[in-house]
Design a protein around this nucleic acid. Structure first.
Length: 782
DNA sequence: ACCTCTTACGTTTTT
DNA sequence: CGTAAGAGGT
């Protein structure tokens, strides 16, 4: 038997060794799904399948990168490089780069991110003389997006009865019109939004039999990860691709389907067996990740959902600790509790920062955690905030590159035509847009013929100079790589000099961000393969396309030891030793937006299931009595999901049991006393640590905080095995105590008020420290 | 044309 | 509460 088959359990081996014909792997949380996927690919290769004939689709670049890495490890050679592994979006973008001309797009088409897309919608709404207060870009955009994901084009949208009824009911009858205008504008701009990458791929396969044939025979073996999260377009595409060989292997867990808002339909996995004859089904039910208590709770909660694929997740792991339920007074207390507990766990159980994750339902919840961690001096990183590439100054430079690669990109063109200021004012730009629309030309075409278009004098000169400049940049493309062109842009346009001369803090940060962008382009240019493992394509177009599909969660910068903060969505597929789930409250989790139908609620429950099953050893669920929302203090009940967890697995000692408010308030006030004592307010924290990263972005690509090195080196102390915090209310000078971190010491004096006593302690190895007795955990030795 | 102040609005979740 | 877009002033 081949080496790689060792260490697989029976169902895993069954899945790995099934080569031909449709296969569905129902993989429970933590059941070794990635292991099976990667081993299966290795097995395919060992069985003589050519790497070039294998396609593996994932939802995140991170998952793709991990798979590739693990396959390389198993194979021990560079054959993995020839595999087509990537996200739906990046793989299709790559294919479309070669085929786009067939459907009227330039091969260096632009990819619009959500911001670009919203901006186009806004333009279109205004051009149609509709009220943009009523037709809000976000609302319209998500309608259009759902339509695209369901393979409904503008024409069908306008004629489909129930859709029109919905729009009429919402008093937005013109969405169909906007959709049509938006689609044709994107086309005119030579741009595809995220949904188009799927939609156009489908159109391509559906319209051109020779293209379909080509990829059907190229991808003889197809694997799809997270199949429960596929939407209609993705489903149809993979069905088309797999139609000839039917060597399609889908992996998923219906209990972890959490992307219906993006058009994912759980039906795809539930119905898979009906799509093909002779579907082999393998269930992976043994969990290798979590403790028994965690698995039991997860199973019990998810049981409240109807209509699942029956399965029984089990584990041989130990029972582990009970799940700790935590109630605090406010959201800030919640943050403090978490930061404090992390500190404590690090000391008590020898965890590292990287063993902890703080998960939440909405991004906005990160703030309270962030502040507390910062105060405690705990290094952390937030995943999924505003990405580096969305910063204005970065987008400006990228806009130049976009225009150079694709002059049809009107969004980018409007962004840079008068940046830096070159005397092309608002009126001129509007005139250009109008002419372009009337003559059905691109805006850049208008600029090229500015003279015939009726522009005169200095305006004409400015326009002509602009065109000449862009042309110059384009001419560089022939011999220079993306980095050299970008540098030329920075120099020639004076952008770099301008930012450099801005000596304000923000100006400095902007300058550094642009430098950072240039560095990243350079890095990309010099790296051997891009994210698809594709060798060679180092063109500007390729760079721009992959940049747009990059999320900040993708950079695998695992080197630094930090606590990770992210939404539960972002945490899917990951695992952590210790997990805190914050805001387990009604109207947050489940979200107030998702409690109107059974389907919505069940998805929230699946999300809860995902959150719980991220934890390997320890899990805390916290909820606050009241928290700030829209600047107002609101009160939420504990989440209904808490009631669904059987008592036997739960430790409620932090939730206050009967006297809940009492316990909560004591916690809160104790912490507050501590802060007053240290003068440790947000303001003083800023003095010590600098302003929070959210406010002052520097060169960092995403929020990341490393605490300053300690002023005096602390001699680390291993707490005694029997360490128990003593009652310190009667503590007197001269007594000997043990501190968790500073070790043994002698009380020199006790000061402070009665409710806020401060002890000055002479430690044996760490010198003199002032310790807040209300807070610190001290063991009285004698 | 640019900067500052005010107001309005928003919180699901992401490629 | 915090940000983003509009208004109004210089």
């Amino acid at each position: 038997m081949q080496d790689y088959l060792k260490g697989l359990n029976e169902p895993q081996r069954e899945a790995v060794t099934h080569i031909n014909g449709p296969l569905m792997i129902v993989a429970g949380a933590g059941s070794g799904k990635t292991k099976v996927l990667t081993t299966r690919i290795a097995h395919l290769l060992a069985s003589g399948v050519d790497a070039f004939n294998i396609l593996a689709l994932t939802f995140t670049n991170k998952a793709a990168a991990e798979m590739k890495e693990r396959i390389e490890k198993i194979l021990g050679n560079s054959e993995a490089r020839n595999l087509y592994i990537g996200t739906f979006h990046s793989v299709f973008a790559r294919i479309l780069r070669g085929e786009a001309h067939r459907i009227g797009y330039p091969n260096s088409f632009t990819i619009y991110d959500t911001d670009d897309s919203r901006s186009v919608i806004k333009t279109v709404v205004n051009e149609l003389n509709l009220d943009d207060k009523h037709y809000k870009p976000n609302v319209v955009g998500s309608r259009i997006s759902s339509a695209k994901n369901a393979l409904i084009g503008p024409a069908e949208y306008a004629t489909t009865h129930y859709i029109q009824q919905e729009d009429m009911r919402a008093n937005r009858p013109a969405i169909a019109q906007i959709y049509a205008a938006y689609a044709s504008r994107c086309f005119k701009n030579g741009a595809m939004d995220f949904d188009d990458l799927l939609l156009k791929m489908y159109e391509l396969l559906n319209t051109f039999p020779e293209v379909l044939h080509k990829y059907q025979h190229k991808f003889k073996y197809i694997m799809i990860d997270e199949y429960q999260d596929t939407n209609t377009v993705q489903y149809q595409i993979t069905k088309l691709l797999a139609a000839v060989h039917e060597n399609i292997c889908v992996v998923g867990d219906d209990a972890q389907s959490i992307y219906s808002f993006r058009g994912a339909t759980i039906e795809n996995i539930l119905q898979f067996q009906k799509d093909y004859d002779d579907v082999k089904v393998v269930k992976l039910e043994q969990n290798y990740r979590s403790s028994q208590n965690i698995i039991s709770v997860a199973n019990e909660v998810i049981r409240n959902n109807k209509g699942q694929i029956p399965k029984n997740l089990w584990t041989e792991n130990e029972h582990g600790e009970k799940i700790k339920l935590v109630r605090t007074m406010t959201d800030n207390d919640e943050g403090r509790f978490v930061a404090d507990t992390i500190q404590e766990q690090k000391l008590r159980n020898h965890y590292h920062n990287s063993d902890f994750a703080i998960l939440y339902r909405t991004n906005a919840q990160s703030r309270a955690f962030e502040e507390s961690l910062r105060r405690m001096g705990i290094a952390y990183r937030i995943y999924g905030g505003t990405s580096f590439y969305q910063r204005k100054e970065v987008k400006d430079v990228l806009a130049y590159l976009r225009v150079i690669a694709n002059t049809r990109d009107e969004e980018a063109l409007k962004r840079i035509i008068n940046y830096p200021v070159r005397g092309i004012g608002k009126t001129t730009i509007e005139k250009c847009v109008i002419i372009a629309n009337e003559q059905n030309m691109t805006m850049f075409d208008v600029l090229q013929q500015a003279g015939t278009a009726g522009f005169k004098g200095s305006t004409l000169e400015s326009l002509q100079n602009f065109v000449t400049m862009i042309r110059y940049f384009q001419s560089l493309l022939a011999e220079k790589n993306a980095y050299d062109v970008a540098v030329q842009v920075g120099k020639h346009t004076n952008i770099i000099k301008e930012l450099f001369n801005d000596k304000t803090t923000e100006g400095l940060a902007r300058y550094e961000n642009v430098q950072e962008l240039l560095n990243s382009i350079k890095e990309w240019t010099e790296s051997p393969g891009n994210e698809d493992g594709e060798v060679g394509d180092k063109s500007l177009g390729a760079y721009l396309q992959q940049i747009t599909l990059l999320t900040d969660a993708d950079e695998n910068k695992e080197d630094s030891d930090v606590v990770k903060l992210m939404t539960i969505h972002a945490a899917k597929g990951l695992e952590f030793g210790c997990v805190f789930v914050g805001g387990v409250e009604e109207s947050i989790f489940p979200s107030g937006m998702s409690i109107n139908t059974r389907e919505e609620l069940e998805e929230e429950r699946r999300l809860f299931y995902v959150a719980v099953t991220r934890a390997k050893q320890r899990l805390w669920l916290s909820y606050a009595n009241s928290r700030y929302r829209f600047g107002q203090l609101v009160q939420n009940d504990p989440s209904r999901f808490i009631e669904e967890m059987p008592d036997q697995y739960i430790d409620r000692s932090y939730a206050g049991g009967g006297a809940r408010n009492h316990a909560g308030s004591e916690w809160g006030s104790g912490i507050e006393r501590m802060q007053r004592g240290f003068g440790n307010t947000a303001a003083s924290a800023e003095k010590r640590y600098g302003p929070p990263p959210a406010k002052k972005p520097s060169v960092q690509k995403r929020p990341e905080y490393m605490p300053p090195p300690p002023q005096s080196k602390v001699v680390t102390h291993q707490p005694s095995a029997d360490f128990v915090a003593s009652d310190t209310s009667q503590l007197q000078a001269g007594q000997r105590v043990e501190h968790q971190k500073f070790g043994f010491g002698k009380i020199a004096s006790i000061e402070g008020s009665a409710h806020n006593p401060v002890a000055t302690i002479q430690f044996e190895h760490n010198g003199e420290k002032k310790i807040m007795l209300n807070y610190a955990k001290l063991r009285i030795v004698e």
